[in-house]
Each structure stands twice: as structure tokens, then as C-alpha cells.
Design a protein around this nucleic acid. Structure first.
Lengths: 355, 355
DNA sequence: ACCAGGACTTAAAGCGCTTTAAATTGTCCT
DNA sequence: AGGACAATTTAAAGCGCTTTAAGTCCTGGT
């Protein structure tokens, strides 16, 4: 982990200052210090440290050693300024979303592979998208990867003039933006196929409210139901993305007398609300009623839920987002591209045969 | 949200280039552009934009307008380089932790109040603490706020030579580092007090494994039990921070014949495992057995769990962390400081009277 | 009129690096 | 030995801002 840092600690001695707060913080070594140590110009040192071909092997070795001895670490701000490139991809996230967490993880590895770094800026209750994006821009991000932005399409289009924008996880109608997302309707279709295959016919859908995603998923439900000849059983209950909505919907069903044999919810949170309400009413899942969610949320994996759900292939989306950014930045692709991935149904324990 | 960006869009016209990818990206306006527009020097513009007193009101207004017209936004990298200050606090997080998410939220507001910005660097499966911290340093963070670091104390101490380190959420024995944390033993003590007050005597504790935090909580349990004269009932079951561990522990209790009247778990994840196992065995909670966790995790708030737990006052910890950093940076405090906050018991629905 | 002093402005020198053109060194022929 | 050419190395000019010392202009006072 941090152990290697000790090398840098030794270097402090050279600086004369032992304690940080004694005679001011010991200045971090600069390129010049490394250069002086090996008796070369800063230009050569810079070349070596960046792995640019040119310097002789002997020079290379000496510089590397000197840099290591001093615990030298390039100053990003200066490099960025001088090279006119930050090699930074700005990523806007909602730090509370487990799914975003997963995306970030993969974005990191994908970016690293192509020599870019990430700078994260999160939304919070008091930090809106504009602020978050401005921060990314202030850091000179070369491209903006926005996870689930809610800003209107035209605002995003304007933003795109400052730096290529890659929208992840949200459908955007006819703009020149790059978009990476999964086919939400297809995810629900797979769920319905799965349930229908198990013999279910009365499959209720708990809606996710307004928003493109909710719309797509709802459409997926309707279309799939019809395709299975279950058009007459289509039944959409109002809901949203919360657990509370799921409970409400389930209670509604319970109060209604006859229960459907399966409930598909807009997302996992909502599905869990359904599960909770059913459990409280003593309805066996998946014995009497099957339940499915969407998102493959961390929640759904908890053994106490073990929810059948739809996974959005975070890894693939992350890779495509980074690729899109790199194509814009290094291969001057000009035409926008939309990558629509197919989600994957994850069958767990809340769905079972019926009939 | 992003709507205001449109102003910047208009400015593009001046640049001659309409499309981003036509004749190269339209360069973002520089200080010089703003200065030229109002016929002043860049020095004056800089002064105005930073709110430094000096420029006349007339100048101030004109500069502000010009900057707005151009959609000017200062380049952080250049400012940092020139001023030798980044006014950046580096924050190391585990992006998958809901608790860290909460801390970050409050860190943002606390930092903003004192004129600092945050730069986040997360741990992932393939990104260790060293990498995360190096990134923060490369951005020239002036101080490092590390959320739950696992690096050994001496490594952290060395790091502290590069920039003041503030450790959050972890106890560190005698170092010169600033630490902000909550009293873990006290949190468990409060839980035990609560349960004992409800008449419980047989209170089992499911352990959290090794690590300072687990140690503190376990100690809190033991001490509190003794204080209530329940020393004979002390019973610690092996476990860790996972749901699986909770289930295992609960099954062990179920197999053991007589159940305790209350189970206190190392954390919420673990507590939820306990809940799941008990539910599966048909044991009523809190009817027959009361259960409590620790962390006030998002999970614990789900209505289907509604778990009694201990909250770590994220807001307070965040504020103290930022304050500590600012004291180091702007008020040259040299003596290390440890802030130990008192956690707060959050009584929900899994604990009830007994006896 | 003339000058001190206040109110503004600005020229210019960096910050720590990258990059390009030019200089230096070394090598190999003839 | 002299020169061409390749291999290295480096001087120097920035990158876009901040900052400080040094102006420039007025205002009044005398």
C-alpha cells in the first residue's frame, strides 16, 4: 500500500527540514532537482520520465534512480499546462448510487488502459449538475462522461461544445451526443419471457414514474406481454423508484383480493418494497407470487432477498464510454454514436414456475 | 442545471468555429480574452474575478459582464500553478460505501464554506490506497482526508510529510496525525444500555473480526455488560462485517437450543444476516428476539428491516475533518488533534421490551 | 501652480512542466 | 584528418494564471 512512500521520507533529509511544520513544509522535489542531481537538463529528465524515446539507456537509468531517490512525482497541474493536455476524463456521478460505483470502478481500469486518468465530481443534495460539470471543466477534463444526467438534451448539446460529452445510461433523442446505455425495454422483455416461460400469465408491472428509463421499461413490459399473447393481462400499477412505492403497490394488490402470479418492478428498490409487503402478508415468494426487479443492485444480491433482476453490464458500459471518449479525443471521430447494450437477466430465488 | 451554459454557446460565434469538430475545438476563453474585451490588463481582470479589493466599481462591472459574455471560467491548473495554492482537499474514499457517500456530501458543503474544493479518489478492487493517494497528491491537494484508511500508522505518518493527513473513522495509536472518529465502544454501550433498560439480560454479540473498530465495539459490549451486572451473560460469537457472518451466527444460536433475548451485531450488514436467519426460522423480531446493528447504513433504514442501529454522525465528522485541515493549512496548527465524537443510538423497530 | 497621497492599473516575473529547434557529441567513412 | 550523419542533449519559449513592485491619474491642500 503506502509503504513505498518511505523512500520519499528519506529524501526529506536532504531538504534540511525534518518536520512538516518546523521551517515550512519541505517542498516537493521538482524536475529541476532531479536534473541537478544527475547533472542533466530538465528537458532530458522530462523525456525519460515520460518514456519518450530519445535519451540513452545510461541516462534513462540514472534519471530513474534519481527520481526514485527523491521521491519525485510530477506535478499534474504543470504538466497539463505545458502540454496543453490533461489526459483527464471528467466523470459526473451520484456518489450514492451503487451502480455508479460499479461503473466508476470499471471506468478506472478502462481509462488506465488507454493512458487517461479520471476526475470524479459528484452530485449531492446541494450540488447540482452544473456545479459538478463546472468542476470537471475547471480541471480541464478533456471529455465528460456523465452518468445518468438529468439535464435537458439541449443543455448537454451546448456543453458538448466545451468538451465531448458521453452520456451513460440515459436515452437522448436525436442529438449529436455520444450515448452508451442498455436497452431497458429489452431487459423487461427478458424478465417477462422468463416468467411466461415458467407458466405465468398474470404478470403485473409496478411502474417507475416519469422519465425516459421508466418509459422504456414500461414499454418493454407491454410489448412483451402482447407478444406472449397476454395483452389482456397487462396491468401497470403506479409507482416510482422507491421501496415505499413497491410496498404501496403490493398492498394495493393484496387489498384487491386476487393476487397476480408475478410482479415485475421498475427497479430493485421498488421490488424489495413489494417483497416486504408480501412477506408481511404471509404470501410466499416465489411459492405463490414471483417477483423480479431491475438493476442488479447490491440489495438484490443480499441473501435475504436473493432477487431475480436485470443486470446492466457496468463493465461493458464503462468500456464503451471510455472508448467513445478516446475516439473523440485521439481519433477525431466526429459523428455521434449511440451504443445500446443488451442487459442480462439474472435469475435468482424470487421467481419460480407456476401452473 | 446546465441551462446557463447556453451563454457560453453564444460566445462560440466569435470564434468563427461553429462545430466542435470542424476547425478544431473552439478554444476556451482565457483571461487575456476577457482583458482585451474590456481594454484592461489581465492583472485587473484577475483581481476582479477573484474578488480581491482594488479595482474600481466601474471596472468590476465591466469585467464581470465581459467574463459572463465570454463564458469565461478560470483554468484551475494555471491558477494553482501561479498562486502556489490549489485550495484543494484530497479525499480518499471507498466509492461503494454508503457511509463514505454521506461523508463526502458533508465534506463538500463544509469545504465550500471555507473556500476549498474537493478532489475525490476512490479505492476499487484494482486501485489501492497508494494509487489513490498519489492521485490526490498529483493534483496538488493541500491536505489529505482519508476515510477509513487501512495503511499502517507509520506509512500514514510518512505521508503526512507531504501534506497534512486527516484520518477519518479509524483509531490510530500515538502518531502525530489528526484523527476524527466516533467512539465505537460508546456506540455499543448505548445499545446495551438501551436493551438492558428494556429488560434484556441475555444479550449476545456477533463479532466483527479483527481490526481496531471491531476491537473497540467488542470492548464496548463487554464493558457495558459488566456495568449492568450482566458479566455472566457475556457471549461473543465469531463473525465479520458480512451478511453471511450474521446468518451463520444466528443459525448457530438457533441450533444451540435456547435463544438469547437480544443480539447485537458488529454492523448493519451482519445484523441483517441475523434478521434473515431468524425470519427464516420463524422467530419473531422484536417479539422473541431483539436485534441491533451499527452504522445506520442505508440498509437499516429500509422499512422491511427498520433496524435499531448506531449512527456515526457523518455531518459532524465531515465538518471536523475539514476544520482540522484548514487549521493545519491556514492557521498553522502543529500539534496533532484527535476528535472523538459520540455516536448516537437510533432506535427503530427491531428492539423491544423483554421481561 | 505644485506636490503629497490615495485610488487604480499594469508590466513583468514567475509557477513547474513540455516541446521544438538547435547545439553538441560520437561514429564511421573515405 | 575531415566531414557527414545519427544519436543525444539542451536552451528557450511558452501554457494561463497570480502577484508584486512600479507606474499613472486624480484630488486637495497650500
Amino acid at each position: 500500500m503506502l509503504h513505498q512512500e518511505i523512500r520519499a521520507g528519506e529524501a526529506q533529509v536532504e531538504d534540511g527540514g525534518s518536520g512538516r511544520h518546523q521551517s515550512g513544509a519541505p517542498k516537493r522535489p521538482r524536475l529541476e532537482d532531479v536534473a541537478a542531481r544527475v547533472g542533466l537538463s530538465t528537458a532530458s529528465v522530462s523525456l525519460v520520465l515520460r518514456g519518450v524515446p530519445g535519451p540513452s539507456e545510461r541516462t534513462r537509468q540514472r534519471v530513474l534512480k534519481a527520481a526514485a531517490d527523491l521521491g519525485y512525482q510530477a506535478d499534474r497541474t504543470a504538466s497539463t499546462l505545458a502540454s496543453r493536455r490533461s489526459r483527464l476524463l471528467g466523470v459526473m456521478i451520484d456518489i450514492r448510487s451503487p451502480f455508479h460505483a460499479e461503473l466508476v470502478e470499471h471506468l478506472h481500469t478502462a481509462a488506465e488502459e488507454v493512458g487517461y486518468d479520471l476526475v470524479l465530481s459528484t452530485l449531492t443534495r446541494t450540488r447540482d449538475e452544473r456545479t459538478a460539470v463546472d468542476t470537471l471543466l475547471a480541471f480541464r477534463s478533456e471529455a465528460l462522461i456523465l452518468l445518468g444526467p438529468t439535464a435537458p438534451a439541449d443543455a448537454l448539446a451546448v456543453l458538448d461544445n466545451k468538451a465531448p460529452v458521453i452520456v451513460v445510461g440515459r436515452r437522448i433523442a436525436d442529438t449529436a451526443l455520444d450515448v452508451v446505455r442498455t436497452a431497458d425495454d429489452d431487459g423487461v422483455r427478458q424478465t417477462i419471457d422468463h416468467l411466461a416461460g415458467l407458466g405465468h400469465r398474470e404478470i403485473v408491472y409496478v411502474d417507475g414514474g416519469k422519465g425516459v428509463i421508466a418509459t422504456d421499461r414500461r414499454r418493454g413490459y407491454r410489448t412483451a406481454m402482447r407478444r406472449h399473447g397476454l395483452g389482456d393481462h397487462i396491468r401497470v400499477l403506479a409507482g416510482d423508484h422507491t421501496e415505499a412505492a413497491g410496498e404501496r403497490a403490493a398492498r394495493h394488490l393484496l387489498d384487491g383480493g386476487r393476487l397476480p402470479t408475478a410482479v415485475v418492478a421498475y427497479n430493485d428498490q421498488c421490488a424489495i418494497g413489494v417483497l416486504a409487503a408480501l412477506a408481511r402478508a404471509g404470501v410466499a415468494v416465489p411459492g405463490e407470487v414471483s417477483v423480479a426487479g431491475y438493476d442488479d443492485d447490491t440489495l438484490s444480491r443480499l441473501s435475504c432477498f436473493n432477487l431475480t433482476t436485470v443486470s446492466q453490464s457496468a463493465r461493458e458500459q464503462a468500456r464503451h464510454a471510455v472508448t467513445a471518449a478516446v475516439e473523440r479525443l485521439d481519433q477525431d471521430r466526429a459523428e455521434p454514436r449511440e451504443v445500446v447494450l443488451t442487459p442480462r437477466l439474472v435469475v435468482r430465488g424470487t421467481t419460480a414456475g407456476h401452473g
